[in-house]
Write a protein that binds this DNA or RNA. Structure first.
Lengths: 105, 105
DNA sequence: TTGCTATTTGTCAATATAGCCAAATAGCAA
DNA sequence: TTGCTATTTGGCTATATTGACAAATAGCAA
């Protein structure tokens, strides 16, 4: 793999890596419904707000979400909504895998 | 997040996590063109065959690839080709991020 | 059998990630 | 100002990942 290609795949992998955590995936799904503040997301996920804040900063670094401060809350929203279109394909992988598991019984 | 929902998001995240590595992403892209054996992929990526083998086992555990032994080679192929459709969206995230970087200069 | 090739698995060190608590920061309200 | 809420950041430990080398396994060919 040449350096150029490597850099390109690293950039793409960073996006997928950011999505590769259950809480972050849940957050993205939630933001697909509309903007949410950190507080709300922390309650929905059921984790410490500092933990959610760090997850959001990972999503933001990956370019997946934007934030906007209003009052003393910070609202996050999806930067690129097409992300959500992929989830049905991911789900088909999960389902095919589950089916393969059943087949082997 | 209820236990049920948590388990569902963990399953989805596992798929995305498997894609969240440059070498594995490259492998998936390569397999989108057709089946390849470990040997070929190791040469293309430029890494030790044992390293590629482990990457492939991660992709396989995630349900993203299948393998078939023929002769003394093992050929891998994509299990669920829709994965590739997502890459254009990932690319748009990467590009938007790059543009945002330029804007801030 | 022996030798050769392809692949996987075990081990290990370096590195990265996750999540909690505590502390720092910022805005609003009294 | 003080206090309250929302959020981020620092520090920490536990855990997971990566990738190389060596060793084990399997199939083919002589």
């Amino acid at each position: 793999m040449s350096d150029n290609i490597k850099i390109r795949y690293e950039a793409r992998a960073a996006v997928l890596k950011a999505l590769g955590h259950p809480s972050r995936l849940f957050i993205v799904d939630e933001l697909a419904k509309g903007e949410r503040c950190v507080n709300e997301l922390a309650a929905l996920v059921g984790a410490d707000m500092s933990t959610i804040s760090k997850h959001l900063s990972i999503l933001k670094s990956a370019g997946l979400v934007n934030d906007e401060k209003r009052g003393n809350s910070i609202f996050y929203r999806l930067a690129i909504p097409c992300i959500v279109n992929f989830f049905s394909c991911v789900e088909s992988v999960v389902k095919a895998k589950a089916q393969a598991g059943l087949d082997s019984l």
